[in-house]
Design a protein around this nucleic acid. Structure first.
Lengths: 120, 120
DNA sequence: TGCAATTCTTACTGTTTGGTAAGTAATTAA
DNA sequence: TTAATTACTTACCAAACAGTAAGAATTGCA
C-alpha cells in the first residue's frame, strides 16, 4: 500500500516549519539558482541573455528555476508583446534582500576553494 | 555507449571552479547539514545527542553527513575508548567560520516563513 | 547465557533533481 | 514559401539524494 506522502516530503515540510535555514536553502538551493540570482542582481536581463550568462544551463532548468523564483515573489517577469518575443526578468524588492546573503555565501565559498577538495 | 562522466557531475564541477556560492551550497546544502551545524555551534555534542536534537534524522543520514563535514575539515570527531562507545563531535576552527553564514541564512529564512508558502 | 547500551555499517528501495532532444507559437524578412 | 528569431513546453531517461530496516562490535551486568 502506497503512503499518501513520502517521508521524504514530510521531513522537508517539517524542517521548513521549524528551521529558517531550511527555508533559505530551499530558495537558494539547487544548482542554478545562485547564478540566476547573481546575474539578476545587476538589473533586468532578458531570458536569452541569462541563458548566455550562465554557462551550461539548459532551457528546461532556466525556465523552471525562474518560474519557481517568480512564484515565491523573488523575481518579476516583464513580457513585451513583440515578435520574436522579448521577456525580461528582474529581482523584486523582496528578491533584492537575497543579495547580501548571496554575497556572503559567495565570499565564504571563495575562501574555501583552495582549502577543500570537492567532491569525489 | 556510456559517457565517462555524467554531464550532471561535470556541470557541478565547473560551477565549483567558477562560483563560490556553489561551493558554499555544496557544504551547507542537503537536508540535514544545517541542523547538524546549528547544533554543533554550541559546543561538543555526542552522536546520540545529535540524533535526539535533530528530529526525524536517520542514523544513516547523520553518519553520512557528519563524515562529509569531517572530511572537509569542518567537524572534528573525538572517540573515547569506552564501552558502550562514546563519540563526540564539534566544529573545527574552520567550521566555526560557518556560524555567521548559518545565522544569516536562518534569520533570512525565518523572515520569509510567513510570506511564502513552500513547496507544492 | 543473554540482554542492554551506543555508534555505526550495509543492502535495498523510493523520491527528487537534472540533462537531452525535439517541438510549438507568432511574426518578419528573404 | 521558407527560414529565422525568441521564449518557452513536453516527454523521456539518468544520476543524486533520502528513507528503511536489519545487523555488527564491545563490554558490563542480571
Amino acid at each position: 500500500m502506497r503512503k499518501e506522502s513520502s517521508t521524504n516530503a514530510l521531513n522537508a515540510q517539517e524542517l521548513y516549519e521549524t528551521c529558517g535555514m531550511a527555508i533559505a536553502l530551499r530558495i537558494l538551493g539547487g544548482r542554478w539558482k545562485p547564478g540566476i540570482i547573481w546575474n539578476l542582481a545587476q538589473g533586468r536581463v532578458r531570458y536569452g541573455q541569462l541563458k548566455a550568462l550562465i554557462p551550461n544551463i539548459s532551457e528546461r532548468m532556466l525556465v523552471q528555476q525562474l518560474k519557481e523564483l517568480e512564484k515565491y515573489g523573488f523575481v518579476e517577469r516583464f513580457v513585451f508583446p513583440e515578435v520574436p518575443p522579448r521577456v525580461e526578468y528582474a529581482l523584486t524588492e523582496e528578491g533584492k534582500t537575497l543579495i547580501p546573503i548571496v554575497q556572503a555565501l559567495a565570499v565564504w565559498g571563495d575562501s574555501q576553494r583552495d582549502k577543500i577538495k570537492l567532491p569525489v
